[in-house]
Amino acid sequence: MNYSEKVEETVEYADLINKVQSVLDFVCSENDELKIERDCAIRNNDPYYYQAINNNMKTNYIISSTLLAIRRDIETMHDDIRADINQEKNALSRSDQTEDNA
Rank of each mutant, 00 (worst) to 15 (best):
A91E: 06
A41R: 02
N60M: 07
Q51C: 06
Q87S: 08
L68V: 12
N44G: 05
T66G: 14
N60R: 10
K58Y: 06
S64C: 00
V20G: 10
N18L: 13
N54K: 11
N31P: 09
V23M: 12
L68G: 11
I42D: 15
I74P: 04
R43T: 09
V11W: 01
V11E: 01
Q51W: 13
E75S: 14
R94D: 08
R82V: 06
S64E: 03
R82L: 06
I81W: 02
E75N: 15
T76E: 08
K35T: 15
T59A: 02
N45C: 03
T98C: 10
T98S: 11
L67K: 13
S64T: 07
T10Y: 04
R82E: 11
A14N: 08
Y61M: 09
N86K: 10
A91W: 04
N45E: 05
S22M: 13
T59P: 00
Q87C: 08
Y3S: 08
K6P: 01
N45W: 10
S64R: 02
V23S: 14
Y3M: 11
R38H: 13
Y49G: 11
E75K: 15
D96E: 14
Y13Q: 12
E5P: 13
K89Q: 09
D25W: 06
K35I: 14
T98A: 12
L67S: 13
S93K: 07
Y48V: 15
D84P: 04
S65C: 07
N55W: 08
D80F: 01
R43A: 02
Y13K: 12
E8N: 05
N60F: 02
P47A: 01
K6D: 01
M77P: 01
E12L: 10
T59C: 03
I53D: 10
N18H: 14
Y61Q: 09
L16E: 14
R82F: 08
L34G: 00
N55H: 05
Q97R: 14
A91T: 05
T10L: 06
